[in-house]
């Protein structure tokens, strides 16, 4: 029982940065923009988040620094792809390379430093409940924020007019422009939101996951977040399934290796990727009808005036 509880806690911790980064990217892609720079924004968020928390001793300020860093980097992307209509794929890749370099620069002085990890929720009576207590009521704030973000985003996309406009812009920016919607402005806001989410996801790593900063500590999580958005067919609900499934299989395979299952470790390490792809592809097969990707995804829009 204790082991199971530990595993579930570890799964939540491993899944949260993926969910945070992927939710931001999902909104960006729903607006028709493909930002491949998630990894870069995450790693800068991690470095700045650590720097902020180290300097002030506050997890909250650290998280805000991470968000701000992600937003600033995403604005570079917005300026290039939306303002100057540069190719989104190339800019996104460049953004990742830039992010890795910048984070190394910022983080160089912090390697080897330690900070206190993010505090966990404690509600007397509830958190001390056996088994479910720590899982439901004893997480750090990031876990709750990531779930609130998904719920809020679903509500925004499907229940508000602004969400409808955003989906419309992702579907057909020419029509949206013809109806008088400010395509580039809304896309810029979406990209900034995505940058903030990626920055927060990055900051989660040194603030809550491990209490120190290592260069390259995002270790490809940004790319996984990107893939999750695609395999979740751009639907927030499936994103939760995908992120937690990936987290669960990554943790379980570690334990399985510890128990000495007679499978090569390389194959075990590949399991999370395989399992997530297989499950999400199976889910997608059952959806009938319209295409799932936002039709304007990744295309450049230049309004005529």
């Amino acid at each position: 029982m204790e082991l199971l509880e530990a595993i579930i806690l570890a799964v939540l911790a491993a899944s949260t940065p993926l969910l945070l980064a992927a939710s931001g990217e999902l909104l960006v892609e729903r607006a028709g923009v493909l930002n491949l720079g998630v990894e870069g924004m995450m790693i800068v968020g991690a470095a700045c988040g650590f720097a902020g928390a180290w300097a002030t001793g506050s997890t909250l300020i650290g998280a805000l620094c991470g968000i701000l860093a992600g937003v600033v980097l995403s604005l570079v992307f917005a300026l290039m792809t939306l303002g100057l209509a540069v190719n989104q794929v190339a800019t996104g890749l460049a953004l990742t390379i830039l992010g890795v370099g910048v984070s190394g620069l910022i983080g160089a002085g912090f390697v080897g430093e330690r900070i206190a990890t993010a505090p966990r929720l404690y509600i007397p009576g509830l958190t001390t409940l056996p088994f479910v207590g720590k899982i439901l009521f004893g997480e750090d704030a990031f876990v709750y924020v990531s779930l609130a973000l998904i719920i809020g985003m679903s509500w925004f996309l499907y229940r508000t007019r602004a969400g409808l406009v955003l989906r419309a812009i992702g579907d057909n920016h020419v029509s949206a422009h013809a109806l008088g919607y400010p395509v580039l402005k809304i896309r810029t806001l979406a990209v900034m939101f995505g940058g903030g989410c990626a920055g927060l996801a990055g900051a989660y790593l040194p603030l809550a996951y491990t209490p120190f900063f290592v260069p390259g500590m995002t270790a490809g999580r940004g790319w996984i977040a990107l893939a999750l958005v695609v395999f979740a067919s751009w639907l927030p609900g499936r994103l939760v399934i995908g992120a937690y499934l990936f987290g669960a299989v990554s943790i379980l395979q570690l334990h399985a290796q510890g128990w000495g299952v007679g499978v090569p470790s390389q194959l075990m390490s590949a399991l999370p990727y395989l399992a997530t792809v297989v499950v999400l592809v199976l889910i997608s097969r059952t959806r009938s009808g319209g295409s799932t990707a936002p039709a304007a995804l990744g295309t450049v829009f230049v309004p005529d005036r």
Binding site: R161, L164, A168, A178, G290
Partner: peptide, 26 residues
């Protein structure tokens, strides 16, 4: 419009709503 300003993956009602100024409920 000649080339329809419609959104293929949205419903008819959503398409109509996008052409209005959103002062009434959906």
């Amino acid at each position: 419009f000649q080339h329809f300003s419609l959104f293929d993956n949205l419903t008819v009602a959503e398409n109509v709503a996008l052409g209005l100024d959103g002062k009434e409920s959906f």
